[in-house]
Design a protein around this nucleic acid. Structure first.
Lengths: 232, 232
DNA sequence: TTCATGCTTCGATGGTAGCCGAAGCATTGT
DNA sequence: ACAATGCTTCGGCTACCATCGAAGCATGAA
């Protein structure tokens, strides 16, 4: 009775936007925890859990228990290859991701990722830092330059000793779910977000549990002055 | 705002069982008409039309008008390659197509494809004919051998002159939707089905519009005696 | 023209699956 | 032992989409 490979089964796994976001977030080869993947996809942990068990059953991802975390990675390069192929087909027809994950535009623009800024503005900030040589990035690792330290001290009153932490890195690249571009995590990312709040540039949304970050009118201007890309 | 290729969009196209069946039916490179694809997928023409327009919008298939038919083919080898990749992933996880297209098991076992027998039994019959050298198959073309003619005359009272037709070939391979294996079409396929009905081995289901073919108890035995594969 | 065939569009229906709230395990830290 | 964190399971809700009937266009045949 078995006929051929059930290509619809595996294709439908990739066909769901939330799962597709998780998979593309895993395309860099690194393993991510279930809750990180939930953040990337913009869904709650329980929904992500359901998706991940389906992906696991379909053989697309593999779990790895570590303490109370569950790390997931793509099973192998074959999976990555097929995903690349699908991306190629999608790219040439001009179908780009416009509205992946959360529907809320505010959530896509600026939100909290753990304790740092994510969303369009988060990506834009790291882009700006990188372009002006304030940080140097190599894959996942980000390093603060001397100019970067001066910049932070001058404009935001952030000194290097505020950033040292026994276990946590100062800078770290964190994949933004809205695409495969990074935003800034680590103690610096957290310190920046905290400073934005202190300066009343931005504040987390009042509704409990919301990850949206609302920028004030002046905060948006100041932010654009420091990290703007000219087009906005 | 555009981010990356929308892999979920194209994957969800392949993710629907009906569309996946159409695509696999097109994997041999030949172009098929819309109604043929509907038959392969086990759906009505209007549903197939909807699916095909989506596949076309997604750039997976290309239409070609010819008379009052619309032939569809895969856009290029890239599409076929991705489909192969998906099939590979599905195959190694052991997920095979068990219940593609129509839910009705009877429809999968034996049904009418135009005027000839399709379904598991149709595929099985052609397999048997080929294995016993009663026909010779090369790709899409099937040829009746001398032994084949004797076999038909002796067991089913079908003579070669009954099969000649000005435009229609005697034998023709027709892809069975349940997988990429062929069943027998052409005037011989039609003559066989007609003979099965005359001998009261099988009859089309009474409910109007149904394509199910019901075999009688004795008919099933006789059929198995002529075309059985030993395992059934 | 008139009819038949192949395909498409429209409208309505139903089944499926994604989603989240609440609660339940498991593991780690204090 | 107790609390906190990470993840899972369960139940209900909602939205989407595949499906088909009926009708509307085309094209080709008589």
């Amino acid at each position: 009775m078995k006929s051929g490979p059930d290509i619809a089964m595996v294709a439908s796994l990739v066909g769901d936007p939330a799962r597709a976001n998780m998979l593309t977030a895993l395309m860099n080869g690194r393993a991510l925890t279930a809750s990180e993947l939930a953040q990337e996809a913009g869904i709650t942990p329980q929904t992500a859990s359901s998706h991940l068990s389906k992906l696991e059953a379909g053989g697309l991802v593999e779990p790895e228990k570590q303490g109370r975390h569950r790390y997931y990675r793509l099973t192998d390069d074959d999976v990555a290859g097929v995903l690349e192929g699908l991306a190629g087909l999608a790219a040439r027809t001009g179908h780009m991701r416009v509205r992946t994950g959360p529907k809320d535009p505010a959530l896509r623009r600026a939100r909290i990722c753990y304790d740092h800024l994510a969303g369009d503005l988060g990506v834009q900030m790291l882009d700006s830092l990188r372009q002006r040589q304030l940080v140097r990035q190599r894959k996942q690792d980000i390093e603060l330059t001397a100019e970067g330290e001066r910049f932070l001290a001058k404009h935001l009153q952030i000194s290097p000793d505020m950033l040292s932490h026994p276990r946590r890195p100062v800078c770290k690249a964190c994949l933004d779910w809205s695409e495969r571009r990074h935003h800034l995590a680590g103690t610096l990312g957290a310190a920046l977000m905290q400073r934005f709040a202190e300066l009343k540039w931005a504040a987390r949304d009042a509704t409990p549990g919301s990850r949206v970050v609302n920028f004030t009118r002046t905060g948006e201007k100041q932010f654009a002055a420091l990290f703007g890309s000219g087009q906005d």
